[in-house]
Amino acid sequence: MCVDDRVVVRNVYLDVSCGEVHVILGPNGAGKTSLLSAIMGLPRVRVCGGTIIFGGEDISGVPAYERARRGIALAHQFVPVIRGVKVANIVKHIIERYGGGGYENILDILDVKHLMGRYLFHGFSGGERRRLELYLTLLQRPKLALLDEPDSGVDVDSLKLIAEAVNYAVRSWSTSMILVTHSGAILDKLYDVTRTHIMIGGQIVYSRDLEATRVVLSRGYIEGLKVLGVSLQ
């Protein structure tokens, strides 16, 4: 996967089944966001080799809006402020597109009702931004949700709500998730983590269950990977 002509992600094989939660751990600049962007089909990342298969179909050349309609949703790490456009407005359009009803629980869990009259992401705290973005993502009722650093820059209360919403979507709707985190702050609050991958330098260098990868969270990526017997070139 390339940004401009630079290869930023290579040799990545990820197989995510229905209802599975895959966590990608990695330091800043490892290529995690680029990987999610490529799966979502954002134009800034180009698939310069390999394929993305979703629901048995090759979607590598499918535009982002079509991927979203097929059931992929991305909770962005960096969201744009859209002055003058109210949150309620965007919510209305998403509900019209994906069908209404059944979202009240997520609305309550993420505690975003009070944000409806505000301009999209304008003047939001870190926690509000993350919670609302997750709400808009789950509002699409995706088959596969891509969560880019949902635990970054949020307070403990917001973190708890975000984890609760993720758990709810996985258990109630069997939503598959690929969750990217560099701090791992959310991991202890997730009920179902199917597999954890460690990404360094644009490659997945280690994949195992959550327990096995905890060492990188406690000792850091360089030392932790040494303990796990992974040598970095």
């Binding site: 982002a64 809006y65 979203a68 744009p80 456009v85 407005n89 965007i90």
Partner: peptide, 26 residues
Amino acid sequence: EEIEYLESKGFTEDEAKSIIIRGFMN
């Protein structure tokens, strides 16, 4: 970036522009 954000929510470029203009004027 606003258009691309809305595209990732399932809207075409034209729909995204329309949503932004409509929401803005409301």
